[in-house]
Computed example of a mutant assay.
Amino acid sequence: MKSITQRHQLILKKLEQTGHVNVQELSTQMKVSDVTIRKDLKLLEDKKLLFRTHGGGSKVNPYANDRPVAEKEQLHAEEKRLIAQAAADMIGHNDSIIIASGTTMLALARSIHAEKHLTVITSALNVALELSHHQHVEVLQLGGQLRQNSSSVMGPYAEQILADVSCSMLFMGVDGIDMEMGLTTTSLMEARLNQRMMTAAQVTVVMADSSKFGKRGLGKICALDQIQHIITDSGISPALVEMLEDKGINLTIVQQ
Rank of each mutant, 00 (worst) to 15 (best):
R192Q: 09
G19Y: 00
I99L: 04
L146K: 08
H8G: 06
N61H: 13
N149W: 06
L15D: 01
A223M: 14
S3N: 09
Q85G: 14
A124S: 15
S33N: 14
L12M: 10
L170T: 08
H8P: 02
R147C: 05
S58N: 08
T199M: 12
L49T: 11
H20M: 11
I83E: 01
M30K: 11
R81H: 15
E245D: 06
V69Y: 01
H229A: 10
T5W: 11
E45D: 12
N194G: 10
G19S: 05
L140M: 09
S58K: 00
K13G: 13
K212F: 02
K247G: 04
S132F: 02
P156V: 03
T103P: 07
T18I: 08
K31C: 10
Q255D: 10
L129K: 08
A163D: 13
K14E: 15
I161L: 05
S101I: 00
C222Q: 08
G217S: 10
A239W: 04
V69I: 14
A70S: 14
S150I: 01
N250V: 11
A77P: 07
N61F: 10
S166F: 08
H93G: 13
V69T: 09
S101R: 02
L125F: 02
G235Q: 06
G219M: 02
R67C: 14
L170R: 01
Q85M: 13
A208Y: 00
T104S: 11
R81V: 12
N94Y: 15
M105V: 07
M179R: 07
G155P: 01
I161E: 04
C167A: 07
V203A: 07
A100L: 07
M207T: 04
N65E: 15
S96H: 11
A201F: 04
H136M: 04
I4H: 12
V120H: 00
M169T: 10
H54N: 06
H8S: 06
S132K: 02
P238G: 09
D225S: 13
A124T: 05
L188R: 13
R192G: 01
S96N: 09
C167K: 03
E115K: 12
K39T: 09
E130P: 03
L75N: 14
D46W: 07
T28S: 15
I98W: 02
M154C: 09
K247R: 14
A109W: 00
H113P: 03
L82V: 10
A88D: 13
Q160I: 01
A208E: 00
N22P: 04
M179C: 03
G214V: 00
A124C: 14
K42R: 15
Q228G: 12
H133Y: 03
V35A: 15
V165I: 09
E138F: 02
I231M: 06
K220F: 07
